[in-house]
Amino acid sequence: MQGRVKIMIIGHGVLGGAVLDLLSQSGRPYDLYVGARNVQQASLRANVARYTALNLGHHPTIEVVPMDLMNIEATAERLATLHPKIIFNATTLHSWWTIRQLPPDAYHQIDRARGGVWTPMHLVLVRRLMKAVREAGLESVVVNASYSDVTNAALAAEGLAPAIGIGNVANAVPGIRLAAAHLLGCDLKAVDVRFFAQHYVSYRMPNTGTTDGAPYHLTIYREGQRTQPEELDHDEIFANVAGQFRRAGDLTGQSVTAASATAVVRALADRVERVVHAPGPLGLVGGYPVRITPAGISIDLPEGLALDEAVEINKGCQKFDGIEAIENDGTVRFTAESAEVMRKLLGYDCDAVALEECEGRAEELARKYDDYRRRFE
């Protein structure tokens, strides 16, 4: 790699901060920028990254800059001035662990709606970011952490899709590799996988040992050779992922997501050829294995699986996450079951959200969720 690479991280919370740490400790020639509304808080977090990296013998270049994604014009001006090669969006109006803070019974009630119903909260900031990138006239590669299985595909309707997402499908792959190597009795390095699945499978399977009927596609390789169905049973693999190779979840497990994000960002920054797993690549629904090269990104399809077949698998899988469909104009339509849960629990009546409506819907949902939360205080 020639020269230094400018990487902008927007958001310095649990995920953004962890990615900042990992990039700071990489020893690579990156100029790291942290965009934040609260510069003072972000500076404190950036110093944690500096201290940690220095203890490990690295000397990162980190600069904190003011950035409010709600202000598209100011964001565009800032981005045009800095001209980052890569932008990592680690912002959302609704972190996935928010509902986990509810009492168990309240959490289980609302979790029946699944993840898709929170889409308006995930769309607002990344949509404004992408408008700012367009206004700035940049060709920066945007990596999106905000429910990119769905938001990237919805934003594609406006020509605003980030290049790729992170986490979700990628978080399930290490467990599958560990379980497959164990069952095959071989070295972990010998095992590789190609996994196609929407967000629902990526969190449900590692917890329950099953996809609950949600569709997916999994190809496993040993020493580069495709294994045969009689060699490995998927149910047995998944049972081992949720059993012997079960990992800590909640915020403790967020380091796995941060590592997946860092793998994507580093492959793009270092201009190397690497296969990663990621949601929302190229504005597609769901998660895929993605080949990143200096020339760009593409879906890494195993022999016998066409791209349209992979997309249909993810479209079927997203119904289990409460998404009936993402329409051609970017409207996200929820399943009747998920919409009904939100109507009964929150009084939130929303069967679908159009892109132009996402901010109003997000405000309404935030308000009604807050009312719901307060019932249990």
Rank of each mutant, 00 (worst) to 15 (best):
W96I: 14
T98G: 09
I99R: 08
R100A: 13
Q101I: 06
L102I: 12
L102N: 09
L102W: 08
P104Y: 11
D105V: 14
A106I: 09
H108K: 15
H108N: 15
Q109C: 10
I110Q: 02
D111K: 15
A113K: 01
A113E: 01
A113P: 07
W118V: 05
W118L: 09
W118N: 06
T119V: 14
T119I: 13
P120F: 03
M121T: 12
V124K: 03
V126P: 05
R127Y: 10
R127P: 04
R127Q: 14
R128F: 11
R128G: 09
L129Y: 05
M130I: 10
M130D: 05
M130V: 10
A132G: 11
V133Y: 01
R134C: 04
R134Q: 14
E135S: 13
E135P: 04
A136V: 09
A136I: 07
V141C: 11
V141E: 06
V142Q: 04
V143Y: 00
V143E: 02
V143L: 04
A145C: 13
S146Q: 08
S148N: 07
S148R: 01
D149E: 10
D149Y: 01
T151A: 11
N152E: 09
A153D: 04
A154E: 03
L155F: 08
L155Y: 04
A156Y: 11
A157H: 07
A157I: 09
A161Y: 02
P162R: 01
A163N: 06
I164H: 02
I164G: 00
G167N: 05
G167P: 03
G167L: 01
G167T: 00
N168G: 01
V169T: 08
V169W: 00
A170S: 08
A170P: 00
A172I: 12
A172R: 00
P174M: 03
G175W: 00
R177L: 11
R177N: 09
A179W: 04
A181F: 08
H182E: 14
L183Y: 08
L183T: 07
L188E: 14
L188V: 14
L188P: 08
K189G: 15
K189F: 11
K189P: 03
A190W: 03
D192Y: 06
D192N: 13
V193L: 02
F195T: 01
F195Y: 14
F196P: 03
F196Q: 00
Q198D: 15
H199D: 07
H199I: 05
S202P: 07
Y203R: 07
R204S: 10
R204Y: 13
R204K: 14
M205W: 06
M205E: 11
M205N: 00
M205C: 12
P206S: 09
G209K: 07
T210Y: 01
D212M: 12
G213P: 12
G213R: 05
A214W: 04
P215Q: 12
L218M: 12
T219S: 13
T219M: 09
I220S: 02
Y221M: 10
R222C: 12
Q225S: 13
